[in-house]
Design a protein around this nucleic acid. Structure first.
Lengths: 209, 209
DNA sequence: TCCAAAATCCCCCATCTGGGCGATAGCCCG
DNA sequence: CGGGCTATCGCCCAGATGGGGGATTTTGGA
């Protein structure tokens, strides 16, 4: 990995910081920094069809925030990685950035060696982050509410998520369609919903399945 | 945090490793290790109603695996944290463990200092892990397929996930119910589904909304 | 041991849904 | 300029769905 050139982009409104970062990166063999922007709007426009591998993105920017920029760029450039730049470790903002599509973050006073290493790690498919951020990410993985459903109901809910109707579910579980309907009615009661779509929505959002 | 006693549990079938871990932990001030098991079944049974804070769980166990044990314990003891024990860093197994409810992992030859530090970090709400694991976790956060839906369709899909029917969606968006139906039909075509439930399931699983 | 919950099955019916088919108008890209 | 996509509105109808009842048996925990 370290043999190929890493193309880095920078989006940072503070002139000094931006130029310093660019100098460090472009001055190091193996790193190239041609795409530099002082606002998110210009960056989104120019980066969408670029060959840039890793973007250092300031979170606080005039106009569009860095988080919003990532949200727009990630879908159109899925292979582009984003490292957010922050003054200090702000767990909430960083977590939101990650939800938006960022891979990790850097605090702005990171020494050059660590900066370059973080970029390298990201390019190599890693995601450098503190343990507290990692925990936040993991937590949002897991179910927060304990499921009120019985195992049979959970089983049926899974099949609902696949779009099966009464009959198909009944066949799959060797039940009568009446029974399936009965279970689904109970699921609705317990989840406080009254349609398949809402049940599926709640099930997946609350990680009940 | 470091002032209160951390109750640690161990589940590990290798006698030597298990006893070594227990000795290290129980021999350190601030750490207590009373719950020690050589198989997952006994651990699940005893830990479900225990006061243990952090469990060191071997992944490979005779009978039930450590991953399965976490899957069973996490729902009934949501405040209990799990650190998986592995011989070497196996990204796939570790990722599966995290999906099952684990917070992090340790390689078995971790030196005592780092071991205790990792336990402390977990007890303090962190999630120690390598950058490559972190990346895997983050990746499963993001949409993998670019959405084929128009913005209007996405808007309607969101409302479908909330369980709204034609009329309610129409009112919310100031449209005729006919138009809503029309959009939904197009959504079905694009997502290759043919019911609300399936559309919602696909939307949330593929992170289209 | 006894009760509550779960799991199974059944009926009725108003309403919702999905599929088929069609129409007009705007917009962008080639 | 024409074709494709989107957005908007419309009608018909068979079949699925949700809500309202009720019933029995098994299971599991207190």
């Amino acid at each position: 990995m370290s043999s190929s050139l890493i193309h880095v982009g920078i989006v940072e409104d503070n002139d000094e910081i931006r130029q310093t970062l660019a100098l460090i990166i472009d001055g190091t063999p193996g790193y190239s920094c041609k795409m530099v922007f002082s606002n998110a709007e210009a960056a989104v426009e120019a980066l969408r069809n670029s060959y840039v591998n890793v973007v250092l993105m300031d979170i606080e920017l005039p106009g569009m925030t860095g988080i919003e920029a990532v949200k727009q760029l990630k879908p159109v450039a899925p292979d582009m990685d984003f490292l957010m730049l922050t003054i200090r470790q702000d767990d909430e903002a960083i977590f939101n950035s990650i939800c938006a599509g960022a891979t990790g973050y850097l605090v702005k006073d990171t020494p050059p060696t660590a900066l370059l290493q973080a970029i390298q790690e990201v390019a190599d498919g890693g995601a450098p982050m503190s343990t507290s951020i990692a925990r936040k990410v993991i937590r949002s993985f897991h179910a927060t509410t304990p499921s009120p459903l019985s195992s049979r109901e959970t089983e049926i809910l899974k099949l609902l998520c696949d779009g099966l109707n009464y009959r198909s579910i009944a066949q799959q579980l060797f039940l009568s369609a009446h029974t399936v309907k009965s279970h689904i009615k109970n699921i609705y009661k317990k989840l406080h919903v009254n349609s398949r779509a809402e049940a599926v929505g709640k099930a997946l959002k609350d990680k009940l399945i």
